[in-house]
Design a protein around this nucleic acid. Structure first.
Lengths: 217, 217
DNA sequence: TCCAATTTAGGACAGTTGACAATTTTATGC
DNA sequence: GCATAAAATTGTCAACTGTCCTAAATTGGA
């Protein structure tokens, strides 16, 4: 039973499939349901009929809102990217909070997210899609760009002495390493055991790299 | 134009699709062709008819050798794992070569492999499959087990003072980090620019971690 | 040469897929 | 109440999927 609903997870319905609460816009319900199926059962299972059934509507109605499967996939990616960006924005632009604290919050959020089952299932799916779909490729890359941005921003505020390429490289490394943990986290360990290890590894690598860029060392 | 054919790449045909050289066993040709399609076009395109056509044979003939799609997928995974294991074995058990040199060779092989287009395409595909297929999940995990094993073995030879959990953790970290680079490497950079960056990041993280485990630091 | 096993061919099956069209139902504004 | 637009239904289409089947061809060994 995974906890800590964050980022992508927030996009998902609180209830179970078919029993979603009323009040959502139809198109929003469709996107959320599609994302839910994508994470739980994979892209192959995310067929138009499957989505329509899970939404409690007919196939023709679904194709009315999203004429093609690709249209739906695009809006799904937009929703995922927006949810990440919104989450980061509230942290980065928190007035009065010192940069060290904001950096810790961003890293904590990323670590939590990487440790969650939702993320470890969603992203391999997106990577596989991106391999053979130019649009998905661009959108996933854009997501990473936007995920690195807050790190770069806060670090630049903390350490104005760091040269531009160094900062970029640092952010890239952290991002890349943590993505590896996305895969690693999905294997063999239940969530309770997984999270501390992911935290330790990610934080240690982060500290090491920051240290290697400092003028003293 | 990617270079450095290693590991998985060695499993692929030298020629183009449909023009494979004679002499391969039929079953081997099928597996290689399926792997080729999986990498180039993704799992969705890897249908029985598509494979048969690419092999220059009829569908019925393909299903004679591999009655079900799952049978073929299993042998494909076995072939991938075997190719990695064979490559590692020749390096690790090279007689007369000092452990430092063997470690460098293993790392170099992994870095080359991660930097190759074949790997950055194949593994996201396998991860996505593993999310919803218990057999693929187990096999991919076994592959990582066997990929970490030579690192652990050589490091244990070099540094008998390292405690068992520390060594495992070290190997895990390297493996996990580098898998992140698999994703990262696939984005935005041509191979020529990609490889030096991947090398620098991977090697630096490796050195940092080894250093953090040493008694001196 | 002949036999048996292996290999190939060709077709058929039931099921699923994305997309589309014609229709009815529901909601909205005047 | 009515006209207009939005939403949902129902049915259909060709294309594709994995699997299975039978018959023909090929091969290798006795």
């Amino acid at each position: 039973m995974d906890q800590i609903p964050k980022l992508v997870t927030d996009l998902l319905m609180p209830g179970r499939e078919g029993g979603y609460a009323k009040g959502y816009e139809t198109r929003e319900l469709i996107v959320r349901t599609a994302l839910h199926i994508l994470i739980e059962e994979g892209y192959r299972a995310m067929s138009m009929r499957r989505i329509a059934a899970a939404c409690g509507m007919r196939l023709g109605n679904l194709t009315y809102h999203y004429p093609t499967r690709e249209d739906l996939l695009r809006e799904l990616l937009n929703a995922v990217i927006s949810s990440y960006e919104a989450e980061f924005a509230t942290i980065v632009h928190a007035p009065g909070v010192p940069p060290e604290e904001r950096l810790a919050r961003v890293c904590g959020l990323i670590i939590e997210d990487i440790g969650s089952k939702k993320t470890t299932r969603l992203f391999p799916e997106l990577w596989a899609l991106a391999n053979h779909d130019a649009f998905v490729y661009e959108r996933v890359h854009e997501l990473y760009d936007r995920a690195r941005a807050p790190l770069v921003e806060i670090i630049a505020e903390m350490r104005p002495d760091l040269a531009e390429p160094a900062r970029l490289d640092l952010a890239l490394f952290i991002s890349a390493s943590m993505e590896g943990l996305t895969v690693f986290a999905g294997y063999r360990m239940p969530f309770a055991e997984r999270l501390p290890i992911v935290e330790r590894i990610a934080i240690r690598s982060f500290i090491d790299i920051v240290r290697s860029f400092s003028p003293a060392g």
